[in-house]
Amino acid sequence: MTRRVNRISPFNITSLALGLAFLYLPIVILVIYSFNASRLVTVWGGWSLRWYTEFFNDRAMLDAAWMSLRVAAVSATVATLLGTLAAIGLARGERFKGRSLFSGMLYAPLVMPEVISGLSLLLLFVALSAERGFWTVTLAHTTLTMCFVTVVVQSRLASIDRSLEEAAMDLGCDPVRAFLSVTLPLIVPAIVAGWMLAFTLSLDDVVIASFTTGPGSATLPIRIYSEVRLGVKPQINAICTMVIALIAVVIVIASFASKLSSSQGESAAPL
């Protein structure tokens, strides 16, 4: 079927261009100013990498960055595993007892204000008298981000033709084999996208981490946040630029990986 060719009207182009400029300009400005030689964040003093070297000499910042990376990697991996299993249960489990509670618990955190999630998890950790630090933050992030993984993987599963699984069973696979040999390869791009999303969400979070971490184990966003509260500093521009670069690299690698793993026409949406 051929879809009618949409005409490009000036109004449409303008609104799109303005919208995209609004979305991108602030980030571009931030990146450019991270290379500013001047200490004054608003005066352009020529190109320089001094704020980057300053970051690499800042012990506390480096520790926070390392903590954040570890939390993001571990929580994203666990969240991807759990989220994928949850998606399978929702997409293929048909009706079962407690299904609506299950989907409710998985969908609510997507829009739930972080202050509530953070506070409630903290109260749980206190009640369990768990020592707060790396593991509590990782647990909290896993809980939040697995819901996003579930949504991404579930929508991919829903788009897969069920007759593929039936064909696999017809050709001699039991249900588990049919899933592993046919469905799983097809949802790999969504699983990869889910991991990326979980990783970046974890790397981004201030509120939940503030509630669930303990003294002496601040994550990078917590440190950035406390610095930002005091005003703009060129070093923060540099750190933010590096975080953006890291996320860009993760996205590029992951989209390559998912392209390689599946050369089928449809590629997973990044959300």
């Binding site: 980030i27 931030l30 990326m196 970046t200 981004d204 966003p221 946040y225 930002v228 975080v243 996320i247």
Partner: peptide, 9 residues
């Protein structure tokens, strides 16, 4: 995908 905090900053 880029950090929410960074965008506010």
């Amino acid at each position: 995908w880029t950090s929410f905090l960074i965008r506010i900053y």
